[in-house]
Write a protein that binds this DNA or RNA. Structure first.
Lengths: 140, 140
DNA sequence: CACGAATTGCGACAAATTTGCAAAAAGCCT
DNA sequence: AGGCTTTTTGCAAATTTGTCGCAATTCGTG
């Protein structure tokens, strides 16, 4: 774990940001974890004040360290592309499990084309797939 | 307008739900409108209590009448596929404009394949593209 | 270790969403 | 239309979520 922490430290330094306990805590909580809600994240950062968690998440989002996943009208947080590669999720509507999927190049290209067809300059995108995972499928 | 309202009425009856003033109001507000935030929706349902708007939206979401669009960590509401066809959005990061796009079949097929590759039964998906519309592009 | 700048923890707030309940409206049957 | 039962609504209060100002701490540096 402390291995990846060093990646954060380097990143923060490169962006002229200080390394602080709350920042390490938030990052560590998000590591090797499924996406977390803000409440869950708070709980996993004991001793860190709620407002600090919010401020850290905002900073990290601005720096591109974390990204928010929308699940219906809620959202969850996860480390961003830089720290775990560009990917999307399959969210199981039954058990809530998240499965990471690596998007293939042709899909990316297709989205670009789709945007271009509308004179739109594509900057980023979010794709969420909902359904049932193999465990929750009617007859596995 | 009252034409489409009859579509809602039929739908609600088929699902054993009552037809009430708040429900008609919420539906009508969402008709022929760009996606709305909860606050905007409330404002367009004068005389309807805030909690009723929330309850109605929740019901409609459960019934598949409305769907929430995630814009970053906020969301907007719009009538769902059943009432206005399956589509996605291009959201301009500069002016906030939403452009509806009809997704092509090949993309749908690709998503199906993507899910299948993970033993996942795809039920629905949401695709949001962010960038700059032609008006806001650096040099139009 | 000392200094100036950046950040944190608190407490107070504001906004968003939910809930309990009595009153009002909807659906149904004469 | 009138009466009856069930579902919803409106209202008020409680939660939950996200912000903000500020003095106390911590960080990065020399």
């Amino acid at each position: 774990m402390s291995h990846d922490l060093s990646q954060l430290i380097t990143y923060l330094q490169e962006h002229g940001q200080n390394i602080t306990a709350p920042r390490r805590a938030v990052f560590t909580a998000l590591q090797n974890s499924d996406p977390l809600t803000m409440a869950e994240l708070e709980k996993r950062c004991p001793g860190v004040d709620r407002s600090s968690v919010y401020r850290t998440v905002m900073l990290f989002e601005r720096l591109g360290v974390v990204q928010r996943l929308s699940i219906g009208w809620k959202y969850k947080l996860e480390l961003s592309d830089i720290f775990q590669g560009h990917h999307h999720h399959l969210t199981c509507q039954a058990c809530g499990k998240h499965i990471e999927i690596t998007e293939d190049v042709s899909l990316e290209a297709q989205l670009q084309a789709l945007a271009a067809a509308h004179d739109f300059t594509l900057k980023s995108h979010q794709l969420e797939l909902f359904g049932l995972c193999s465990d929750c499928s009617p007859r596995a």
